[in-house]
């Protein structure tokens, strides 16, 4: 059964500007991880913004876990969609420490559960010793791990990742790739990874989708 489905979604930014997505459709099963590849400017980030509710499509429909998030007459605001996102530039809150950043999305939990979940996440990304630092006091790789922990902490139904490796050097990249794959498997996380590096997608995802500038997509199943 498809867990996530978007069908015939079209979108452009300002009135009269170029269409970024034209009748775009994509479906994911529960626990599946899909890589979206494409050239710079083809609309990969835009796709994630539409799924998360930061942008509103002109037409089309998006359903997550049986709930319609957007269609012709309905729009669910981003805070109610249960979608987690790791941003291209991480977007860590500069005025909050590592632990405050990670615990930010845990406001629905009780105090005790919150502390437990925070501990779990810190352990997962191996940042226990850095919990009281501010984002600008961390290296690029550490910041990226905080961003992952922050997005995963509230247990989102769907995890979106926008070029999460773009600021990392090659060594770190390889290491984090395999960590991330295990992490997603372990959590049975349904996820979409946007990248322009095929190796990233091969290493992490079950399936790869190629996106071309405002066109339909072609697909390929990952052998691994």
């Amino acid at each position: 059964m498809t867990f996530f489905e978007m069908s015939d979604v079209s979108f452009h930014y300002d009135k009269g500007s170029r269409t970024v997505l034209r009748r775009f459709s994509l479906g994911l099963d529960k626990g599946e991880s899909v890589g979206v590849l494409g050239q710079s400017g083809c609309g990969k980030s835009t796709l994630l913004r539409l799924i998360s509710g930061l942008e509103e499509p002109v037409t089309g429909r998006i359903v997550i876990d049986g709930t319609t998030m957007v269609d012709a007459r309905k729009f669910v605001n981003p805070e109610l969609r249960g979608v987690g996102m790791v941003f291209q530039d991480y977007g860590l809150f500069p005025h909050l420490t590592v632990e405050q950043n990670i615990a930010f999305g845990l406001h629905r939990l009780s105090k005790k559960n919150r502390a437990a979940r925070l501990g779990e996440m810190l352990e997962l990304v191996k940042l226990q010793d850095y919990r009281r630092r501010y984002p600008h006091e961390l290296s690029g790789g550490q910041q990226q791990r905080v961003a992952f922990a922050r997005a995963l902490a509230p247990e989102p139904a769907l995890l979106l990742m926008d070029e999460p490796f773009s600021n990392l050097d090659a060594n770190l990249r390889g290491e984090i790739r395999s960590e991330l794959r295990q992490l997603l498997r372990a959590a049975e996380m349904t996820s979409i990874l946007v990248t322009h590096d095929k190796e990233d997608a091969d290493a992490i995802c079950d399936r790869i989708v190629y996106m071309q500038a405002n066109d339909e997509i072609s697909q390929e199943r990952n052998s691994s």
Partner: peptide
């Protein structure tokens, strides 16, 4: 807008 967007995706109105 990026911090605002991050916050909304983490469930804050």
């Amino acid at each position: 807008n990026r911090y605002t967007e991050a916050s909304r995706l983490l469930g804050f109105g």
